[in-house]
């Protein structure tokens, strides 16, 4: 059976991830119930509002199903999704899934007027290449465990902040690759596991 990459579609920028998967010729489907999750080979938790997404994961009875799913399937969390990946969050309105050992700092840079873009370099990319990273009310990270690899940092304005984390098949990003239409990061994540089946007819 061909399994699709699921995109959690409770709230947020889920359609943009489906578009990127489409551009990579990967079957994708929205996930709003545990039944839909069961037919997926991997899951993306998109950006949106982390307190909202956390609440809606609880209200839609998806908390335990996602945790169990993540034990043997890859999960990628972006922005609000990154916060959900953490073991700890600096705001008790969010109950993280605890899939990667680090602490997430919500809304690290402040209100929307402080959102920004910057070019970053990624460890897995070709030499000399940069990625246009869009940070929107983005989270920061702290207490990153030594089990977690840092694949990219924001070194803009004398900062030195981890912005892409990876542990096993899971990844967490504080910025939004789906908004650029650039497929490199999704492609790297997908190439880390083999179960994914290319699919000609993308929905």
């Amino acid at each position: 059976m061909n399994k699709a990459v699921g995109v959690l579609a409770l709230q947020g920028a889920y359609q943009k991830h489906i578009d990127i998967l489409g551009a990579l010729n990967i079957a994708a489907q929205t996930v709003r119930t545990s039944h839909e999750l069961a037919s997926c080979c991997a899951l993306i938790i998109p950006g949106g509002e982390s307190t909202t997404i956390s609440l809606l994961i609880q209200k839609n009875s998806l908390y335990d199903p996602i945790k169990i799913f993540a034990e043997n399937h890859p999960v990628m969390g972006v922005c609000a999704g990154m916060i959900m990946m953490a073991t700890e969050v600096d705001d008790d309105r969010v109950t993280p899934l605890g899939l990667m050992p680090f602490k997430a700092l919500r809304n690290h840079y402040g209100a929307q007027v402080h959102s920004f873009t910057t070019d970053i370099t990624m460890d897995f990319d070709s030499k000399g290449q940069t990625f246009p990273a869009i940070f929107i009310r983005a989270p920061g990270v702290d207490k990153v465990s030594s089990e977690v690899q840092v694949l990219a940092r924001n070194v803009n304005k004398n900062r030195n902040e981890a912005v892409i984390l990876k542990k096993g098949q899971h990844m967490a990003l504080s910025f939004h690759p789906e908004l650029t239409g650039d497929t490199r990061i999704h492609n790297y994540w997908l190439n880390n596991f083999k179960q994914v089946t290319p699919h000609a007819s993308i929905k």
Partner: peptide, 16 residues
């Protein structure tokens, strides 16, 4: 650039 960042925030509010 600013416009993309701002449309980006609107994207984050979708489905809500």
């Amino acid at each position: 650039n600013k416009f993309s960042i701002n449309v980006g925030l609107a994207e984050m509010l979708k489905g809500g």
